Amino acid sequence: MIATDLRSGVEQLGDMIAEASVIVPFTGAGISTESGIPDFRSPGGLWSRNQPIPYDAFVARQDARDEAWRRRFAMQPTFGAARPSRGHRALAALYRAGKIPAVLTQNIDNLHQASGFAEQDVIELHGNTTYARCIGCGRRHELEWVKACWERTHHAPVCTVCDEPVKTATISFGQPMPEEAMQRAAELAQNCDLLLAIGSSLVVWPAAGFPLLAKQSGAKLVIINNEPTDQDQTADLVIRYDIGEILGPFVGN
């Protein structure tokens, strides 16, 4: 069912939230645009300006690694200034109320943690861009160290332990998905009674399979997104209005 207007959509969503015992949000880039972080696919999005660098290219070529870090530091003012949106804050309110055990997110911006979710309850399917990891030994490196190395040499650094390349702790195209996060996401999707897919185009797989898994496991599915998705026909409710306007009324709950 597609909501006919914003008010009726919010009212129907409110009823479904009230009835649900276990709610699992699945969030994409759309929930962070109000925070000032551009999305990827829309006109003017990040990928309209720079095509993503595949994982195999990052591993194989120094120039690809250098370009990846150049882009990351060019985005630092944007990421550094971002604060949780009304959507983030609404989900955090439901989390504090005990309705939400954890959030599944395709986002890499750390804003769910900043809104009040405990780190262990943010299931990051595509990683996190606010720190870095060695692709060899997995050692964590802070961005301040990476930037200092970058400014000194103008090259992407290597790990201080094993000399393998260091990249943001994000999942690039062609990079294996995080097994533990994927397993936990599947368990949450199978054991909720309401899944809220918020701000996701639902085209990036395998992550986009979790809303369908929840629906197949007996949960109700709500899709909140400005644009149509391929899963709209499966959803119990589709609301195509601004995410902040839809979720804003739940911030204080």
Rank of each mutant, 00 (worst) to 15 (best):
I2K: 15
T4R: 15
S8N: 05
S8G: 05
G9C: 13
E19F: 07
V24S: 02
F26N: 04
A29V: 08
S32G: 08
G45D: 13
Y55N: 12
F58K: 15
Q62K: 07
R71M: 14
P84I: 03
H88G: 06
R89Y: 14
A92S: 05
A92E: 02
A93S: 15
A93G: 14
Y95C: 01
A97G: 03
G98F: 14
G98L: 13
A102F: 00
T105C: 05
N107G: 10
H112D: 12
Q113G: 09
F117G: 04
A118T: 08
A118G: 11
G127R: 09
N128M: 09
Y131T: 09
A132G: 11
C134L: 08
G136C: 02
G138H: 13
E142C: 09
E144Q: 14
W145H: 08
C149P: 11
W150P: 09
A156W: 05
V158C: 13
T160D: 14
E164A: 07
T168L: 15
A169D: 02
T170A: 13
P178N: 05
E179D: 15
A181G: 06
R184S: 07
L188C: 06
D193G: 01
A197M: 05
V203C: 14
P211G: 02
L213V: 07
K215C: 00
S217M: 11
S217K: 03
A219K: 01
A219W: 10
I224S: 13
N226W: 08
E227Q: 15
E227T: 11
T229L: 05
A235S: 06
L237E: 00
V238L: 08
V238I: 15
Y241H: 10
F250Q: 09
V251I: 15
G252V: 15
